[in-house]
Design a binder for these strands. Structure first.
Lengths: 217, 217
DNA sequence: GTCTATATTAGGATAGAC
DNA sequence: GTCTATCCTAATATAGAC
């Protein structure tokens, strides 16, 4: 749930579209893995949806595991765009107060997760969290640690500027992010069922207000 | 991550042990589902481990789904024991300050999750969160909502007694619980890999300290 | 890089003897 | 309530023609 100033959000593909079938396989796999989980979706399901025979898939991927691997590499890159780039941090601290910064981070994240593919990638991450070690690594390092590091840096600078009360910036960052990640989980659960995400957006607002109130001088 | 005063923690079985095989099936299923997920563990895996033939299993359960159902019913009952019973609440508010209360809640929860079976049940819950609607219901209602309701009641009473600063008790309860549940997830992830849970226990302590500091007068 | 055909193993589930 | 035997479908994956 964090923070960028101005940036485009995604370039749908990473490389120029060379191999259409391979991309289609990935897209369909993301769809199916996010619905049924990795072990619940079969090569048959995937190839049927793609419109090729099972044997053809093996020209693009060595095996089923390699599809998931590719998907996670993708997610890693998308997740990297959630946070503001290091070189923007000084500008953020200069021009925003805490509440504005947190608010922007949330807008930013909601835009990220409103993208259908990103949403599915998050679901896959959650589903595989306890079975694919790579999923846990992404959660812990690319999501939690990176975000907390970034928040810590910004909080520290804001404290220097008198925009936040002087407190342990690491602990503040952890507290903020721990609540945020729970809200993301709830958001994903609600959205899955096609339910309104209003109640979560309310909670997110509460969270920012609450945190700003205790953190600002 | 909450709060009981004094109580026994579990009675390993719910009914007197009548059908040993059925119980063995459940135990093995909990083990395997928590490792491979529901769709990743087969009837074959289960019966092999139990030491019966596949066909025998169907004398105890109509089908595979029914095993998972039974497991979730179990979890629901265990989860119910994490919170203090309603009739203890006044006593809690009378005799404890906020920090003590939160500390007890955490001790209580750690004791709950240190039980091998409970730990596996939590893993199954997380793994199936996005595929078994019942898992989501348990998470949202039995874990989150009930805990937040309970905290709200206690916080409200503590505020009346001047043990907490007067603030919106619902929002306070939500903030506390949102962070807690993230810590539980991290705890589960670390414990799975056999890693030390020290770093999380440190974070939990921070969380309680942080919250107490902002909530107390 | 797609297809047909096939191998092989694993999946859930049932029938019927004991 | 356990077993043997069996069913049928689905799973991952490979060989080889086009």
């Amino acid at each position: 749930m964090n923070n960028v100033v101005e940036r485009t959000y995604y370039d749908v593909e990473l490389e120029p579209v060379i191999n259409t079938t391979k991309i289609k396989i990935i897209e369909v796999s993301i769809e199916l893995f996010s619905k049924k989980g990795f072990s619940g979706a079969s090569i048959r399901d995937i190839t049927k949806e793609v419109g090729i025979k099972e044997s053809s898939l093996y020209k693009h991927f060595k095996n089923k595991d390699q599809i998931l691997e590719t998907i996670f590499v993708n997610f890693r890159m998308e997740a990297d765009k959630i946070l503001p780039p290091m070189e923007h941090i000084d500008h953020i601290v200069e021009t925003m107060d805490l509440k504005m910064f947190l608010g922007r981070g949330i807008e930013n994240f909601l835009r990220h997760i409103d993208n259908e593919i990103n949403f599915k990638l998050w679901r896959i991450l959650y589903i595989e969290l306890f079975r694919q070690p790579i999923a846990q690594e992404i959660y812990r390092k690319d999501i939690m640690r990176k975000t907390i590091d970034c928040l810590e840096t910004i909080f520290e600078k804001m404290m220097e500027k008198g925009k936040m009360k002087p407190q342990n910036p690491r602990i503040m960052a952890e507290e903020y992010q721990l609540s945020s990640i729970s809200l993301i989980l709830e958001y994903n659960m609600l959205k899955e069922e096609g339910m309104s995400t209003e109640s979560i957006e309310e909670k997110i607002k509460n969270h920012v207000d609450f945190f700003s109130a205790i953190a600002c001088p």
